[in-house]
Design a protein around this nucleic acid. Structure first.
Lengths: 223, 223
DNA sequence: ATATTTATTTAGATTAGTCTAAATTTTATT
DNA sequence: AATAAAATTTAGACTAATCTAAATAAATAT
């Protein structure tokens, strides 16, 4: 049995590793979780004893297979609950994260299985992120971010990789949502910002930070 | 902000006080929660500092108005979640308790409000227990237990006051459910057991313990 | 290659919730 | 009313998760 806190460590290791590819440093974990590095070191030893991670002093940490499965299970629960909140309980996509952070720790196989059925086996969450399946496979196609594209490319927004209320409110105020059509008018090398035409109407400027968190698909229907 | 554990103390105090009427003793709390009396004493001091309870050394404990409201809020959440599990997720009434014990601690006003709407404002839970309203009133009519009645009385089962899987399985194996018709054939003074006729069919013997947890209504349609 | 900076770990302390054992208060019994 | 029994509290200790400050290892820059 893992505590909420231990589960949060595993989830954070997963998220950092997913973004960086390599092993996860003590400091990056401490920063992400808002705690001190010394605390992280203690917990890494503990999770290593329980064989959820591979940990060598000073060498960073990677998830073991057991740890990886646990991370995917937590993410699966998080995203299913987000879907439930949006589809059944009238939550906005910018309101679900906090509550899902709590719900993802509820322990019950049957609960998740039945929730999945009740939602009719969704494959993506309200932010366009894939929901790992019951067998913990992530049927994720290659993911493209806005910043992967260049001038004149035309794209559709299909997801976001940051579900903080702050970011989602930002998108709302830019009038960007899932399905929005984006034409890149300019890539500014100076600050890595993008000038885009949104839905063939408004022209808006997108900062590097926003561009890094917008998941898009290239759009073939050029006019 | 209260921890899960503090909330469980408050809930337990409420439940014991509800059953006994008077103030709650350190020992009864310790026994109900499966911990030692010394531990309870420490926590009572803490909850008293936070003014959730009225506590005088050696004199037992009662909930303050603030504590009472919190208890009702927790019970409201517990029973709404039970309803959700049974009505939407195909749980049996004997499977919901454990999961609801976890879900009752999720913090989100909006979540509970929307869940209530989604379930169409239920007034009782799957065990026939009343759900406190959003304004935390318990619209409870006087409650009668099987053991309040005598030979030849005819009753309908409208609820249970123990939602442990053990008890509910017991009822299932006796073929007793909400709505069952009971005619009391015999009250055995020796062991306080009851011989009953169930739904005008089978004759079964009910132990004192079961009789204490079956909520019934007198039935006027005698044949 | 050495020195400096940065990252990480160790050591020791703190808080919440728990325990056992001893002391104290209340209740019950003679 | 005095004593015995039961309930409760106090004192001191433990574990998990955190912290700060100091020590050590790794990475970087001269």
């Amino acid at each position: 049995m893992l505590s909420f806190i231990e589960e949060n460590y595993i989830k954070s290791i997963y998220k950092i590793a997913e973004a960086s590819g390599g092993p996860v440093s003590t400091n990056s974990l401490a920063e992400k979780m808002g705690i001190k590095a010394a605390t992280v070191t203690d917990m890494l030893r503990k999770l290593s004893d329980k064989s959820f991670i591979h940990y060598q002093k000073y060498q960073g940490v990677t998830l073991s297979e057991k740890g990886n499965n646990r991370a995917l299970q937590i993410i699966r629960k998080h995203r299913l609950w987000e879907m439930f909140l949006v589809q059944k309980l009238n939550f906005g996509w910018d309101e679900v994260h906090e509550v899902a952070e709590q719900l993802e720790h509820i322990q019950s196989e049957k609960l998740i299985h039945e929730l999945d059925r009740f939602l009719d086996y969704p494959t993506i969450d309200p932010h366009g992120e894939p929901i790992p399946t019951a067998s913990l496979e992530m049927n994720r196609e290659p993911v493209w971010y806005l910043f992967n594209f260049r001038k004149a490319d035309i794209l559709t927004v299909v997801g976001v990789s940051d579900d903080s209320a702050l970011f989602l409110n930002m998108l709302d105020s830019l009038a960007i949502s899932l399905g929005s059509l984006i034409e890149i008018l300019e890539c500014n090398e100076y600050d890595n910002s993008f000038l885009i035409k949104l839905n063939n109407k408004a022209t808006v400027l997108i900062s590097q930070k926003v561009a890094q968190n917008l998941i898009v698909q290239p759009n073939n229907d050029r006019k």
